[in-house]
Amino acid sequence: MALLLLTIVASLAIGAEHVPFRAVLPGVLSPDGGSRDELIVHELRLPRTLLGVAVGMALGLAGSVMQALTRNPLAEPGLLGVNGGAALAVVVVIGTFRVDEVLVYVWAAFAGAAGAAALVYLIGARGRGGASPARLVLAGAAVNAAFSAMTAGVMLFTPHNFSGFRFWQVGSLGGRDMAVLLRVLPFVAAGTVLALLLARPLNALGLGDDAGRALGSSPGRTRALGALAVVLLCGAATAAAGPITFLGLAVPFIVRAVVGPDQRIVLPCSLLLAPVLLLGADIAGRVIAPGELETGIVTAFLGAPLFAVMVRRGRTREL
């Protein structure tokens, strides 16, 4: 929690435009912006930072729930095509109806995320051996590639509708105002509460279906509610900031290495660590390039080596 607070302060103070620390607190508290520095903090960095906290919490928690549900340490909204499905649905809505309303994007993202998750599971579960970790990752990669190609195709044929969407497509926290956060916050809050309430059932599910039933848990209900929580969290996060990848993979991996496999600890810790990493990537994107590097590019640059290390060390076994 202390690290998250420090990261929030850094996100408000650090950027392409220098703002002294003494202007951060007045900028947060002053809606009128008494000075240029305070105006930058209040109008640009405060909405971006709060959105980063909400999106980071959503993606980190969604990754933890997905890995617990599938017992697959490589399960992640981006790798399994969930973010890609949400992005495709948003693109289709924009290209077909030319809407510019975040709430419409959210509902479209929910539908796309749910459809992608179901499709990946159906493909991965076919054949002998069922939905093993390797099968799900391969199915997710195939579905994600198909959705990415379809998204590019829709954008190619209707380029006039996507002038601002190109930055959203790679995952970005910039250019969003407080209205975007307020639109998605109820869905993030609902998904967060539901995911945290599933901590004990997810622990029981990790022992196997038979052991879970013996402990009084219902595996089917747990999977259904967990899938609902993932759709709420991923749909809201993708609608607000675009398909940011690898955050849901890295955060649970780091948390389990520190605190162990107990979901009653893993889920709250993922909730706190994920926005730290996302805001850290966003800060890095602001300062390492002459203009600005989008947040999704930075998270992919940092997450891809971690994914390679996990695979190389043989951590694809079931949790």
Rank of each mutant, 00 (worst) to 15 (best):
Y105T: 06
A89F: 01
G127Q: 12
L194V: 12
A179I: 07
A116D: 00
G140T: 08
G78M: 05
A190K: 06
V154H: 06
V92T: 15
A118R: 02
F162A: 05
D177T: 12
V193C: 13
L194A: 09
F147E: 11
R98W: 01
V188L: 09
I94H: 08
A86H: 05
P159C: 02
S172I: 04
V188N: 07
M178S: 15
V184G: 01
F147P: 07
A190S: 09
V188Q: 04
G164Y: 03
L173W: 09
R98A: 14
R135T: 08
F187D: 12
S148N: 03
G171Y: 04
L88N: 14
A111T: 08
E101V: 12
A116Q: 01
G171F: 01
L138W: 03
G95V: 05
L196M: 15
A113L: 05
A139E: 03
G81R: 01
T151P: 01
A131N: 11
R126A: 15
L156Y: 10
W107M: 10
F187T: 13
E101F: 01
G140A: 14
L196H: 12
A87G: 13
V180R: 01
E76D: 15
R166G: 07
G85Q: 08
A142M: 13
G84E: 06
A118K: 04
V180I: 11
L80N: 02
R135H: 11
V82K: 01
R183E: 15
A108C: 02
R128K: 15
E76P: 03
R135I: 07
A141M: 10
Y121Q: 11
G81T: 02
N144R: 07
D100M: 04
A145P: 05
S148W: 00
F165E: 11
V93W: 04
G127A: 13
V104H: 02
W107Q: 04
V170Q: 12
L80C: 04
P77T: 05
R98N: 11
A149Y: 02
V188R: 03
S148H: 02
G112Q: 06
R176S: 11
G81L: 03
V120E: 14
V93C: 11
L156K: 00
A139M: 05
T151M: 02
N144Q: 15
N144K: 07
A195K: 08
